[in-house]
Simulated assay, not measured.
Amino acid sequence: MILSIQAGLVLPSMLLRKLSSHNRKNRLYQAFRELGRVERTLFLLRYISDPQVRRSIRAETTKIESFNDFLDWITFGGPVIKSGDPVEQEKQVKYASLVANAIMLSNVADLTDVINSMAEDGLRVTPELAASLRRSY
Rank of each mutant, 00 (worst) to 15 (best):
S136I: 00
Y47W: 11
A131L: 10
R54P: 03
K91P: 00
V99E: 02
A131N: 13
L16G: 13
A7F: 15
L129K: 10
A59M: 01
R55V: 04
L44A: 09
A130T: 08
S13D: 15
Q6L: 14
L123W: 07
A96Y: 04
W73R: 05
L45H: 14
E39H: 11
E60S: 12
P79R: 07
P12D: 15
D110P: 00
D69E: 06
A131P: 02
Q30V: 10
P127F: 00
L19D: 08
G84E: 04
V99M: 05
R40L: 14
G77A: 04
L98P: 02
I2G: 09
A59L: 05
V10A: 07
L111W: 07
Y137G: 00
D110S: 04
S49G: 08
S132C: 01
L123I: 03
S21W: 12
V108N: 00
N116T: 07
D110M: 02
N107Y: 09
A7W: 14
Q52T: 06
Q52P: 01
S13M: 12
D121W: 05
N23R: 15
A31L: 12
Y47P: 02
S117R: 13
T126A: 07
I5S: 10
A100F: 03
I115E: 02
K18F: 09
K18V: 14
D69H: 10
S13F: 09
I5H: 11
G36E: 01
R46I: 10
I115C: 08
S56Y: 00
K91W: 03
M1R: 05
S4C: 10
A119D: 11
N107W: 10
I57W: 01
E65T: 08
V87F: 08
L9V: 12
S66A: 02
L28I: 15
Y47N: 08
D121H: 14
G122S: 08
G122V: 09
D121G: 11
K91F: 07
I81C: 04
L11Q: 15
G77W: 00
F67A: 03
S20P: 02
N68A: 05
R134T: 00
L19C: 13
P51A: 13
I103G: 02
S97Y: 06
L111M: 04
Q30W: 04
L111P: 01
Y29L: 07
R37N: 13
A131G: 07
Y47R: 07
R27W: 09
E128V: 00
F32M: 13
L16A: 14
L35S: 12
M1G: 05
D121E: 05
S106D: 06
R37C: 11
L28T: 14
L35P: 02
Q52W: 14
K91T: 04
R40T: 11
E34H: 09
T75G: 03
R134Y: 00
D110G: 00
A131F: 00
F43E: 11
L9I: 12
A100Y: 02
A7Y: 15
N107C: 02
D69F: 10
S4E: 14
